[in-house]
Design a protein around this nucleic acid. Sequence first.
DNA 1: CGGAAGATTGTAATCAATTACTATTTTCCA
DNA 2: TGGAAAATAGTAATTGATTACAATCTTCCG
Lengths: 202, 202
Amino acid sequence: MKTKTTIRNLPAEQRRAVTVEAVIELAAEKNPASITTAEIAGRMQLTQGALFRHFPTKDALWQSVMEWVTAQLLGRIDKVIATTESPLEALELMFAAHIDFVVKHPGAPRMMFAELQRPDPTAAKAIAQTMLCNYSDRVGKLLVKGMKEGIIDPALDVAAASVMFIGMVQGLVMQSMIAGDIAVMLGNAKPLFALYARGIKK
Amino acid sequence: MKTKTTIRNLPAEQRRAVTVEAVIELAAEKNPASITTAEIAGRMQLTQGALFRHFPTKDALWQSVMEWVTAQLLGRIDKVIATTESPLEALELMFAAHIDFVVKHPGAPRMMFAELQRPDPTAAKAIAQTMLCNYSDRVGKLLVKGMKEGIIDPALDVAAASVMFIGMVQGLVMQSMIAGDIAVMLGNAKPLFALYARGIKK
DNA sequence: CGGAAGATTGTAATCAATTACTATTTTCCA
DNA sequence: TGGAAAATAGTAATTGATTACAATCTTCCG
């Protein structure tokens, strides 16, 4: 298998993938809503006009970005869920996988948040909403499973616990934005989940 | 005392206040980073140019908005803290006050988040950072007080619990954005805090 | 050489900000 | 106390920069 050394004249599919990655990178540095097509092109050593050869509109590009985030995040957590027996352990590994993903791609949650903020019902926004619903669903299912197994408090409010789970990630993201350092998330993830576990355990 | 009925020719200070409110309103409907000066002016029945009579730059306006949010939010929670003996009860009332504020002004947390995302160290961003540090500090002090009183788990990770507290608000905001309905926060606030309390109590 | 990928150049719309000007209040003293 | 003068508030038009997007060349590679 030969690896491409040149970044010019990439096949279309590969170029699209590189473009999505460039957007995620940029989203880590600034407000996603303010990212311009010129900036994206500049980041990947391309002219602005060339971008529109691979994406008909900017929104189509953003749609691809949201699909990438969805595939990445849900892919990671589904792998964890599939290989873990204990629901509580699965939740912890799922949380760790989520944080790991966010640390590796800080732009991803920002894209998510920015997309949800849009007033008009775009395709990209719908993908973001669906993704979070699916995410919340998986958390809820694990909680219910834990309740049936007698590990988790049977009186637990599953909806609240799901919101809390997502809120933990958001809280860490916010903390890292205040600190201006993404890595702080890694240090705070473990005690944060311990606190969560303490709240939901039987 | 006579009340002004006209919205034209307001005194400068009053006009600035109205402008800040208009921005908060707009931020509830769309991504704060995408709010234009023309939109702000349009919302308050004013021409775009007139805005720059009261604010030298757009960033100066955003600075005023962040100061307003700071004064409102910290003002509310400080009042709660000052009039409540029990630290656990204070945390619950503080959480309720925060949610109440966010429900009344959904644009406020969005402005906060958008400002924190900016790459350049603007004055507005600094205000947002300081505000959140102060907020986190107040949560931390209440937690420590509760630990001393023997109400809260002495082994609690205060930093993690502070992140979780802010994360709860963020989680609710995110949930309301997915649902497209701000009011869902009110229904989920109580069970969410109950879950939090369960995690930090002795 | 033929087609896909990229460069170059261009456009209409929109952005924050400034201009020259008018309308409205407020001030203050004869 | 009335009314000219000064200060303040707002308008309409315009600025140069920037935006997403399009049309037309040019290069590369099998």
